[in-house]
Design a protein around this nucleic acid. Structure first.
Length: 205
DNA sequence: TCTATGATCCCCT
DNA sequence: GGGGATCATAGAT
């Protein structure tokens, strides 16, 4: 393993360009440590949600509800909400407080704690579906709605940089998944994936 | 390989 | 009442 792991700090998240940050999160390592159990995976797919001007964002038009409150929580806030009544989706909040920029983590390549991921998912054997898709990876890492509003500077949930960088030709940019109803914003190039990675979600490209 | 469907929460029309 | 930042399974093609 790499020798130098550096937890991403406040300054990484406290920037204005959420789309650029979403791109930079590819290759970073998402870690959870609950009750001494460490699980982690490398981020291979992200989507940016550009706040009040983005029809696909829960905060479009300045909307603010009990569910979306933590979208406004400031850089490094964890925003987790329930989708379709059963899946918990993990987002990272960027930009300064009260600017509801979010990045949805859509896929990971498992690194540590695979046994616990399998247990949490109720699967007997590891395969590409273990951390493929936002609902699946949140479940695998043991994250749920109860963690929304926490931040990425604790010892429970955080993101590390081990120095890995994908080259430009290893990254593919597409429109986002499942946001057809966002009209003109549905086609924005806000999804970033690692080319050819088997854990990347969704049908075809 | 593809399309349809059920599970069932939070918000909006 | 309806739809959504989803996923697994069943049945059709």
């Amino acid at each position: 393993m790499s020798g130098s792991l550096k937890k991403l700090d406040h300054s990484f998240y406290n920037r204005k360009d959420v789309v650029q940050i979403a791109r930079e999160l590819l290759g970073k390592i998402l870690v959870t440590q609950f009750e001494g159990i460490r699980s982690s995976g490398r981020i291979v797919e992200t989507e940016a949600y550009n706040g009040v001007e983005d029809r696909a964002c829960h905060a479009f038009g300045g909307r603010r509800t009990a569910r979306s409150e933590h979208l406004y929580g400031g850089p490094g806030t964890v925003y987790i909400y329930i989708c379709y009544g059963m899946h918990h989706l993990f987002n990272v909040i960027t930009n300064k407080k009260d600017i509801p920029h979010a990045i949805l983590i859509r896929a990971l390549e498992p690194i540590e704690g695979v046994d616990y991921m399998l247990k949490r998912r109720g699967k007997p054997l590891a395969d590409y579906t273990l951390t493929k898709g936002p609902g699946n990876l949140a479940c695998a890492l043991g994250m749920s709605k109860k963690h929304t509003g926490e931040d990425l500077f604790s010892e429970e949930i955080f993101i590390e940089d081990d120095g890995l960088r994908y080259k430009k030709d290893q990254i593919v940019v597409t429109k986002r998944i499942g946001v057809e109803s966002a009209r003109e914003d549905a086609v924005l190039p806000y999804r970033f994936i690692v080319k050819g990675n088997p854990y990347v979600s969704a049908k075809k490209t």
